[in-house]
């Protein structure tokens, strides 16, 4: 399957990937509206830049074959589609953070003031993910994993059955009600 691969040698640490990811997954879908909120709350991105401008890397979900977050999720919100995409149904997520506890990549995030977690869903496979489209340094690539294919560790063995989505499901972020 295609995933987002970061190139840390090219990454500028500008965090534009975070901005466009967060906006795309906010209820507003627009950068200005998503960040210029009435209550000052900021949307959470599924891709997060580690490091500083000297050395940085943008980390996002690896969509693991036997995804630990899917297996450990206590609510059943974290799921894998038949295409292999790991996504969180935020209508069912209670924000317990078991996925944050279990993800060895640190690629699941609970933003401040958020009721649910946020992670990369490859922009729900609507073409090139927003982070890749907007990276000015070409440090993010959306491609098949060459190493996995070469070593025969492709994703054909992924569970073919999973993917019974609910009709009311969604990956949109859910904000805490203001107290």
């Amino acid at each position: 399957m295609k995933k987002v691969y970061p190139n840390e040698d090219w990454c500028l640490g500008c965090k534009l990937c975070e901005v466009y990811c967060a906006a795309a997954h906010s209820p507003y879908r627009d950068v200005h509206a998503a960040f210029d909120t009435p209550d000052g709350s900021k949307p959470q991105a599924g891709i997060v830049v580690e490091g500083d401008t000297k050395h940085s890397i943008a980390i996002s979900c690896r969509h693991c074959p036997d995804a630990p977050c899917v297996e450990a999720c206590i609510s059943g919100a974290m799921q894998k589609t038949s295409d292999g995409v790991v996504w969180c149904d935020t209508t069912r997520c209670v924000g317990c953070m078991t996925c944050v506890l279990i993800c060895p990549y640190g690629a699941v995030h609970k933003g401040e003031g958020m009721k649910t977690v946020t992670k990369c869903d490859l922009c729900s496979c609507t073409g090139e993910p927003e982070c890749v489209r907007h990276c000015p340094a070409f440090a993010l690539e959306y491609k098949e994993c060459e190493a996995a294919q070469a070593s025969g560790r492709g994703y054909a063995s992924e569970r073919a059955f999973i993917g019974d989505k609910d009709s009311q499901s969604g990956t949109e972020q859910v904000m805490e009600e203001s107290a």
Binding site: E8, P104, A148
Partner: peptide
């Protein structure tokens, strides 16, 4: 190790 793991091959 990081590059290896980012290819999506879990080492657990």
């Amino acid at each position: 190790e990081r590059l290896q793991r980012m290819e999506g091959v879990r080492s657990i």
